[in-house]
Design a protein around this nucleic acid. Structure first.
Lengths: 106, 106
DNA sequence: CTAAGATGCAACCGTTCGGTTGCACAGGAT
DNA sequence: ATCCTGTGCAACCGAACGGTTGCATCTTAG
């Protein structure tokens, strides 16, 4: 039903560089410069990607003095997986199980 | 690890029209013209979307006389969900459970 | 045979995307 | 006060994207 969060999440995850950023952040917080150092793109590119990820709710940021640290937030994965489970329900018993799983409260 | 299927799946799913096509197909097979009739886009647009979905392995097609019928195939969802479970593992206990679930054989 | 419906191919268009570069601004360290 | 270092803003570029239109082709229904 609600399509906008799903849209942002899938879009955010559809780019390889952005997935790399997510992977890096899943291992610990970082700022834009640090992330760019570990990827073959400029800091500006990373900043744009972080903005997209943040739009999707996949990262949060926090200003600390002159730097801005980004944190990993996988919560919106739930939306994406729910969509898949809902659409795929009945075709794959694993998706049924997933749908049940996603309804358990954190 | 292998990134190309995940890439195709997330990319395919990142477009609202394409998700609508998936939803329609999840309710039953159809040809391009039938799908286009139920969506606010041209048949040609639908055809292009079906090509993208097929690249991601999300639909299969079968020629039947003068028409070409498309079938829903949610199997690649598994790749996308695996990626999310892997990256998000440790942050959300539901993702841990999912990761275990995805390792069960069909 | 012929007409109608479905697909395929290709060109075109405006917008978005991923990425770059250049420069200005802000906050810490010394 | 001054020099780094990290951010932010904006312009720019080429490629890909989502979509359209027009036309050709193929196949079945009558």
């Amino acid at each position: 039903m609600t399509d906008w969060p799903v849209d942002a999440v899938f879009s955010a995850l559809s780019d390889p560089t952005r997935r790399s950023v997510m992977r890096l952040l899943s291992e610990g917080d970082a700022n834009a410069t640090e992330i760019a150092d570990q990827l073959p793109v400029s800091r500006q590119a990373v900043t744009k990607h972080l903005w997209a990820l943040s739009e999707a709710g996949l990262v949060t940021s926090e200003r600390d003095g002159r730097e801005k640290r980004y944190h990993f937030t996988p919560a919106p994965f739930r939306d994406a997986m729910s969509w898949m489970a809902e659409v795929g329900a009945g075709w794959d018993h694993r998706l049924d199980a997933l749908q049940r799983l996603l309804q358990t409260r954190p």
